[in-house]
Design a protein around this nucleic acid. Structure first.
Lengths: 108, 108
DNA sequence: ACTTACCGTAAGTGAAGACTCACCAAGCAG
DNA sequence: CTGCTTGGTGAGTCTTCACTTACGGTAAGT
């Protein structure tokens, strides 16, 4: 989850969830150099969020379903553990219909 | 969402979702100084995740339901936008992988 | 009023990391 | 083989940020 902390890395990852891309392709779509893209990819691969496939001299990167599943699990664990007291509130956003906002009581 | 990037800040936030705390109380429960806690709280308040309440000379901080709802909305938006192609996979955990599970480790 | 407790802010330090350029390895075409 | 393309790695720079100490400002107790 720390791997998605960087905005550029999130954008790269998002692109790769749609279709696989080579490093050079990614580098042209971002205002950073190719080595920088490579380093971001390395982080994402180490985090288990990407898979690499070799196509001649090129490397095709794509999102890894397994890593994504783990990511979702960890996000939901955080949601369950950290936000127990706000589960109801988080379920129906107050900006939407029927804002039954009821701040839970906390005792000192 | 960037406000929860720091582990210490996540821990502080998690504590405040359970019950409100004064700055000094928080400082005793973490291996950092009181000003450091104050700075973390500032970030969380600026992010709209915390509310402040004055009690004499003390400041009681607590999680903000509205901010939490927005956070959850943004997380779910990311999930929907970025991971469309993996919705099914993310729904059920990766017990085992497809036959395409073969580590291409031919690098020298 | 003085004293003590609680807290925010300013200034400075140190580590983490995102980025660049330069170099080198691997694959394909001639 | 040479030449071109693709891409990973190392070294170095620079920015960001979490942290500290020092200080100022407000509230409650005496």
């Amino acid at each position: 989850m720390d791997a998605l902390g960087d905005p550029t890395r999130r954008a790269i990852f998002e692109l790769l969830t749609r279709e696989e891309h080579a490093v050079g392709e990614l580098a042209t779509q971002f205002p950073i150099s190719r080595p920088a893209v490579s380093q971001h990819l390395r982080v994402l691969v180490d985090a288990g969020l990407l898979t690499v496939r070799r196509d001649g001299a090129r490397r095709l990167y794509a999102a890894d379903p397994a890593g994504i599943a783990l990511l979702k699990a960890s996000v939901e664990r955080f949601w369950r553990d950290a936000l127990v007291a706000f589960k109801d509130v988080a379920e129906h956003p107050p900006a939407q219909q029927s804002p039954a906002e009821q701040p839970p009581e906390e005792e000192a």
